[in-house]
Structure formats: structure tokens, C-alpha cells
Design a protein around this nucleic acid. Sequence first.
DNA 1: CGGTTTGTTTTGAGTAGTTCAAAACAAACG
DNA 2: CGTTTGTTTTGAACTACTCAAAACAAACCG
Lengths: 153, 153
Amino acid sequence: MPTAPSSLSDTDLLRQMIRASGLKVTAPRVAVLRALQQLPHSSAERVFDGVKDELSSTSPQAVYGILAAFTGAGLVRRFDPPGSPALFECRVGDNHHHLVCIRCATVRDVDCVIGQAPCLEPSDNSGFTIFAAEVTFNGLCEQCRTAASTDDD
Amino acid sequence: MPTAPSSLSDTDLLRQMIRASGLKVTAPRVAVLRALQQLPHSSAERVFDGVKDELSSTSPQAVYGILAAFTGAGLVRRFDPPGSPALFECRVGDNHHHLVCIRCATVRDVDCVIGQAPCLEPSDNSGFTIFAAEVTFNGLCEQCRTAASTDDD
DNA sequence: CGGTTTGTTTTGAGTAGTTCAAAACAAACG
DNA sequence: CGTTTGTTTTGAACTACTCAAAACAAACCG
């Protein structure tokens, strides 16, 4: 299989990413990673919906397993919004944060206010060794704020 | 029932707090609030364990309901650590953050690095109206770090 | 002090999201 | 191409939590 068309080299890139994380490359894994790139902030079930088109014999459990493997390998980041299923995204390494709408559960990425690694140094770490900071802003998205004011919440 | 002893005035204080939040004062609610003051960062089940001594006919569901009412009234704060049940605490209003040990799930409060309301202003809020920021530091507590190095994780 | 209203708790059942274990299977390496 | 090692499938089970309806108690009012 020599010089492949650009649509296939995209797949090759995904394969490389998976292998580089120390994981074996399989069709379900490639499909999950692609689905996640196309639909960031997806729940396991949403990812499953995205891959079941191209993979007929895949179950939600497989997706859970794949996402757990990816998260463990640092390939994807898991994010647990309160009151909703866990969400997954491909943006890793940068220490970005999340804006969550408390009404429609929309999630949007934000870079931090202060430099690259914000809040990564708490004033008193009580002997803890900090690895990562998870920052979530709870609010109302523009659309829901408008709806709330007419709707009278 | 005039001037009560100090052990009872503690209960009275709890009753006042509940009433001040616009909620009716009931025995289970007082017990839950007291248990939460004694054991901060408790799950609903832990709270239930704490109150079932003094309240015989209480069910976990009642505790869920009471905690939901308290959270809605702003009397307690709910905190959802990834991979663990929701935790509740009495410290509200100050915008404090949490240190979570990824090994033993211990939670410890921290005040923020930058002033009173840190990170409450993201660089780009994308039209969102922000109400609160939830900041969680993931790391290893002192005890678990020691255990991890001898244990070789 | 007792009746009425309103909000709370109990009881029971049910659900979503996730995890576990074992067998079938496929990728990677030689 | 065979072997090893890791992955996926299948099926079931479990935890945390929610819902609805009936029993109940607090707060207010006369």
C-alpha cells in the first residue's frame, strides 16, 4: 500500500497516534478516535452512535473499554460534568478548561486566564503532589440565557 | 423551653440555618446538617450512615432528598469528583477549591491562589454568563505518594 | 389549642451509566 | 505462518441516583 490518497492518510495519522501511545492499533480504536475528533465533548454513548455506522458489531461496552484505554494512555481527556455522563475529548496536554451550560449542558473549551498552567499551584497544597487541575465554569450559554429571560425561569 | 444548655443551642443554630434558607425545620434535616458539619466531603451514603444512629426510620432516599433541598437552597455545596459519588460540604459562599487524591480519594479544601474569586473570569466566555467556578486539583496526598514509591506503582 | 394548608418524608420501584469476568479474537513480533 | 500478548465481544451485574404516590409533620391561622 504505497502513497495513499489524503483521506486515507488521515486514518494513518490516527493509527500513528494510537501506536505512539503504546496501544495496539485496531479498527474500533481508529473509529473511536476519529469520532472523537469530529465530535468533541462526547459521552461514551454518543461516541458509540458515531462509530456504529462504520463498525457493525460494536457494543457500547467496547467503546467504554477503548475510551478507558485512551484516557489511561493520555490520548484523550475525560471530563465529568456534574449530573451528566462523562465526556471525552482529544485536546490533551494544554491545560484548558470548560464552560458548561447548566441548562442545556453545552460544553465549550476555554484557555485559561493566567498563562499556560493556571491554578496549577494552589496556595496551600497540604502535602499533595499536583498532577492536573480541572476547572469548570458553570453558567448559562447565550441561547439559554435568552430563553430563560423570555421563559421566565 | 427557655434558656437551653449549650449542647442544645447548637441544635438551635442548625435549625436557624435551615429556616433562614427558606426550608422547614425537621428532625432528619437537622441531623443531616449536623452530620455534614462533623464529616465534610461526605457522600450521601456516608451522611446516611451518620444519621441512622439518631434517626431510626430514615432511608438513603430521604438523605438524597434532603441534600438536594439543601443544595438548591444554597445551604450546602455539592461537588462531583470524577469516578466517585457526589460529595457534600457546608462551606458555601467562599469560592474554595478541592484537592483530590487520585489514589485514596481523600478531599481537602484549598483557598484559591488569586484573591477571592479566582478564575471566575475566563479569558473568553463565549457568551456564557458565569455563575460559579469549580476547581479541582488532581494529585497524590502525602501518604499515598509515600505508599506509591515503596509500593512501586 | 386544634384545624388546615403546605411542604417533607417514607416506601417502593425503576433507570442511566458504568464496570466486571470469561471466552473469542486479532495485532504484532519473530 | 505460528505464537504471544493484548483487545474485543458477550452477558450480566452493580452503584448512584431519581421518580411517583401515599403517609406524615411543620407552620400558620383562627
